[in-house]
Design a protein around this nucleic acid. Sequence first.
RNA 1: GUGAUUGUAGCUCAGUUGGUUAGAGCGCCAGAUUGUGGCUCUGGAGGUCGCGGGUUCGAGUCCCGUCUUUCACCCCA
Length: 457
Amino acid sequence: MKPAIPKGTRDFAPYEMVKRNFIINTITNTYRHYGYRQIETPAMENLSTLEGKYGEEGDKLLFRILNSGLKPEDLKKSDSINAITEKGLRYDLTVPFARYVVMHQNEITFPFKRYQVQPVWRADRPQKGRYREFIQCDADVIGSNSLLNEVEMVMMIKDVFQKLGLGVTIKINNRKVLAGICEAIGVPDKMMNITIAIDKLDKTGWHKVKEELLSKGISPSAILKLEPILQFQSDSISALSFLKNQLSASETGLKGIHEIQSVFDSLSAVNFHFQTIQFDHTLARGLNYYTGAIFEVKVNHPGSNFSGSLLGGGRYDDLTGIFGLPHVSGVGISFGIDRIYDVMDELKLFESINLQASSTQVLFVNFGEEEVKYILPVLQQLRAASINAELYPDAVKLKKQISYADSNKIPFVVIAGTNEITNNQLTIKLMDQGKQETISSGKLIERLKTENIVKQK
RNA sequence: GUGAUUGUAGCUCAGUUGGUUAGAGCGCCAGAUUGUGGCUCUGGAGGUCGCGGGUUCGAGUCCCGUCUUUCACCCCA
């Protein structure tokens, strides 16, 4: 049998995990820094929890789990999929979080700030930057309507990408602005169709968007009114005042503008520099549950033309309502670390970051039973002193053992054979310099501490 | 779901209009060097040419089917 893994899934080698963990740790450290606390939820949820929350497309992309104990005849006689599947793999972390909040509402003190780092699964066709299994890093505040939460989201996004050294543009819009636009052009009931169409504006251009709108039954007169609104491109401040005029008749639209304005005002109060954030009234985002602010992050770094989003998020006013807890608003963001990894790797950004390739700092050579007896207590002393160390398990040729240290990037090798043992000494080999020196066995930790690698921890 | 695309050694790939024992680089193993990695040299192992069928005296090469890879659309992190 030829080993293989399912389409759209991947293995990760140790050298890749070092980089992935660097990204995850950067994000989770930031989350904790801002007061978020971690939870986890199961990989699988009841389908009733997941279905209908992500729009029509989302439902199609759900991985369904076949009920256990099915017999062939059950498959034949079942007239619908629902009769043979009742569980599915989670599609994102936000909906399971809403379910969690409702189930645990009596234990939670609101507002609840949680973060969650777990894989999600989508039965999509894999392609560049798109996987069937990928990790999301979410932070959400639920049970607070304050726009300060939106401000906090933006600041965390900025902090993370700054620490990663990756240039990005944070795009922000508000579903209320989109609703206002639909009101202003006289088709308030077609908001979903319109937002999905205009989301493609930067990709396909106005001509294609117009075609799609017509095919969705939007009247030519409405499209005529929409065109100047969408074509307006400017800096965030001018765009806000332009739309304020355009949407003067729409209470909802004005509210959306006001919300964005408020977020920008707060950001300027903390000297947030505005090159990285951009109000974009054509940003739509397909997920059904957003009602207020929506966020998206795109790469804006010389040398990268990656077009997918690295992060998505927004405010949802009634996601918990579906599960029986109405009137609880939340806002959150979700980093896609797999895409961030791809972009950073392509740009070779990891090379300038001091990543510890191997956690082992010292390898003890194994010459045989007698020598191991001499080594073992020293090995334990190093570990007790928080120095990561290992002993080669087999008494094979020295060449092989040194090569092991070399290919695993272990910086120090300690050699103790009969010569060293009779003099109560150790030979320490500094791999990067190719030098070695013999010291008395009690001085090993002291000697290692003069080297950077040990201090670096 | 739609349209393309890929598949040959562990990895990256070459393989002529169909022709005899299918190659290279890297990696791996061994030796040069019995207690010393990276560099060098020598040798070695490793292939149902994705799978099934067809055409042919003869198929890695041509045809059909199927699976797989990658990419675009849709949608999304």
